[in-house]
């Protein structure tokens, strides 16, 4: 499980862990039922105090992302539940907030942002289809 801690933006470390795990779950890199590393191991890996990991796991448990199995490890919860979908929406909402704030700073109107999104979406679709064509040719 690859997590990176940054001290730059003032976000508490446990929050960063929670956010990154959320992202890993939402993007499918962590499957439902997969076991998260033990508190001690993750603490040594990230070089943060065990307490921070405890906090992070506790926060994730209360948000429904993970569950504890009678003291023997922490496991990823099933993401198909409506709670999971809500969490995934939250992640996207955060990204959108950041985009909108930056756009406002740079004096872009909302319509310009929408246009930009449409253009990027088209470009992304084009490159995806190109890649799948190549794959079919050489595959």
């Amino acid at each position: 499980m690859r997590i990176e801690i940054s001290l730059q933006d003032g976000v508490p470390i446990y929050r960063q862990i929670v956010n990154q795990v959320k992202y890993l779950i939402a993007s499918g890199q962590l499957d439902a039922g997969e076991e998260l590393p033990p508190i001690r191991t993750l603490a040594e890996q990230l070089l943060v105090t065990p307490n921070t990991i405890v906090k992070a796991y506790g926060a994730m448990e209360s948000e429904g992302l993970v569950y504890k199995r009678h003291g023997a490890g922490t496991y990823v919860a099933d993401m198909k539940s409506p709670l999971a979908r809500k969490e995934q929406k939250k992640i996207l909402a955060q990204r959108a907030d950041a985009l909108l704030a930056e756009a406002s700073q740079l004096n872009f109107t909302f319509d310009e942002v929408l246009d930009l999104l449409r253009n990027r979406h088209t470009a992304l679709n084009k490159s995806i289809s190109k890649e799948s064509n190549n794959a079919r040719k050489h595959g």
Binding site: R40, A43, L47, T49, P50
Partner: peptide, 13 residues
């Protein structure tokens, strides 16, 4: 430095 932090974590764990 990493070694030292590691030892601290292992002690407190």
């Amino acid at each position: 430095r990493k070694d030292i932090l590691n030892v601290i974590i292992r002690t407190v764990a």
